[in-house]
């Protein structure tokens, strides 16, 4: 079967069941399950995540982006240091970027204190980390392609039948 079609469908709707996917694609459920497993094993599909607006709950939640200036290491470049940063569970995304600092990471924590502790006690002391710039998120408008709390577009106001 065409794995790309399956990927596109899952990108649009990660909750689609194997039965749904098989019906849409005209493949057997076994074939869909097998292809899906293989995409997961190859880490082409890396996860299925839910976009939650924690601001609407009473759970304390703080997000921040941190720019990290770092020096590459002989032999491993930035990979080794990235691995060290990435191991911390607070780090939800980590990128090597062009621009003023080398890494950009996002972290999810409960309080600003936690973020400060993470930067001061865990991130800054890592060998090779030269400087950090922390940007706290004040308000989220769009996350992973989803508009949070913004005026929804009209869904379908077409005439029932047209030429």
């Amino acid at each position: 079967m065409d794995a790309m079609k399956l990927l596109h469908l899952l990108a649009d709707d990660p909750r689609a069941t194997v039965t749904d996917l098989a019906d849409i694609l005209g493949e057997s459920e076994e074939e869909v399950a097998k292809t899906k497993d293989s995409l997961e094993a190859k880490k082409i599909i890396c996860g299925y995540h839910t976009v939650i607006n924690w601001d609407k709950t009473n759970i304390d939640h703080v997000d921040a982006f941190i720019g990290v200036s770092a020096k590459p290491e002989r032999g491993t470049g930035y990979d080794k240091i990235a691995e060290r940063i990435g191991k911390f569970p607070e780090v939800s995304s980590l990128y090597l970027t062009s621009g003023t600092s080398e890494f950009l990471l996002s972290i999810n924590a409960r309080t600003m204190r936690e973020v400060a502790d993470f930067v001061g006690e865990k991130l800054a002391p890592i060998d090779g980390v030269a400087a950090t710039v922390t940007m706290f998120v004040l308000k989220k408008y769009k996350v992973n392609g989803v508009m949070l709390d913004m005026k929804a577009e009209i869904e379908d106001d077409r005439q029932l039948i047209s030429a």
Partner: peptide, 17 residues
């Protein structure tokens, strides 16, 4: 169109857009 319009719960596969 007139027939379908009388049926608010109908689902359409009738559009040309």
């Amino acid at each position: 169109f007139d027939l379908a319009a009388e049926m608010p719960e109908c689902i359409s596969l009738g559009v040309g857009e």
